[in-house]
């Protein structure tokens, strides 16, 4: 008899007010002497825990990883020399770009990452991947913005990945640098053969925010992690749809026509390399 009572008390959690269960206990007296409002909160807490246990069973984790490459070879900052399709040689000292508004799509109910703002920085390996929880199920595609959505460009001081401390916010013409590549090339006529592409612009005709959609059939299993490995090919920055040569355009540091051309190119640099389930 006692055992059964215990079980009722434990499992649903909701029937704590059952007089039969608590009549003869000290706690019972305390409980009923507490105000009605507090008893109501007890009920809410019980419901909350029941739901959270229930919900956990329905969600898995999606881990997104980026591998920055040049022509299929993993990017090495500073030391490696690369060639673009115009036979121009260059090296890269800095590569940073924003990934935001990450979304995984399935037949119904697409899953959006909350507060989804990430700054990928080739110099910081911890920035090359991030994870979020989402409902389990079979997904058909995956998309994100390359850049920061226009709203966050004009909503005042931000924090985290969007903190101006990250040196990705233009102080003289409000708005985020969505993509930043710096390095050098003998073909650049700038000081120290510098190449510098600071690509930004969030409004109207100057908008360079790119939605990247990658077809990806993957499954998220409750309690497990699915990892999507996305490969970027930085060399795409110079080649098609717009041909951009270093000798002609070694620098882009303002919103406008050139920035839009560069963005149209680098929006093609992402491909899904692998999707795999990591059993937890």
């Amino acid at each position: 008899m006692n055992k059964q009572r215990n079980r009722i008390f434990f499992v649903p959690g909701l029937w704590i007010t059952d007089q039969q269960l608590l009549r003869r206990t000290l706690v019972h007296k305390q409980y009923y002497s507490t105000p009605l409002l507090q008893r109501f909160f007890l009920l809410l807490i019980s419901i909350f825990f029941s739901f959270s246990v229930f919900a956990q069973k329905q969600t898995g984790t999606l881990k997104i990883s980026f591998i920055n490459t040049v022509n299929g070879i993993p990017l090495v900052l500073n030391d490696s020399v690369y060639n673009n399709s115009f036979k121009e040689t260059y090296s890269i000292s800095k590569l940073k770009y924003y990934i935001s508004n990450v979304r995984a799509n399935k037949a119904s109910n697409p899953q959006k990452e909350k507060n989804s703002y990430h700054l990928v920085n080739a110099a910081d390996t911890t920035s090359l991947h991030f994870s979020f929880s989402l409902k389990s199920g079979n997904y058909t595609s995956f998309d994100f913005l390359l850049g920061v959505d226009s709203l966050r460009n004009c909503s005042g001081a931000q924090s985290g990945a969007l903190d101006p401390l990250n040196d990705m916010f233009w102080t003289w013409n409000s708005g985020y640098v969505m993509f930043k590549l710096e390095g050098s090339s003998p073909q650049s006529g700038q000081v120290n053969n510098r190449i510098e592409y600071h690509i930004g612009g969030y409004a109207g005709a100057n908008n360079v925010i790119k939605k990247i959609s990658l077809p990806a059939a993957f499954e998220v299993i409750a309690g497990n992690t699915t990892e999507l490995i996305i490969e970027t090919d930085i060399n795409k920055l110079w080649l098609g749809p717009n041909d951009i040569s270093i000798v002609q355009s070694p620098v882009c540091s303002t919103p406008g026509a050139l920035a839009k051309k560069v963005a149209a190119n680098y929006s093609k640099m992402f491909s899904l390399k692998n999707a795999m389930i990591i059993k937890n």
Binding site: R5, F10, I16, V27, Q30, L42, S46
Partner: peptide, 17 residues
């Protein structure tokens, strides 16, 4: 067990307030 658990729940409720 019942006493302990009930006390624990009360404790957490009190925290809330």
């Amino acid at each position: 067990t019942r006493v302990i658990i009930s006390l624990a729940v009360l404790f957490f409720t009190a925290q809330f307030f």
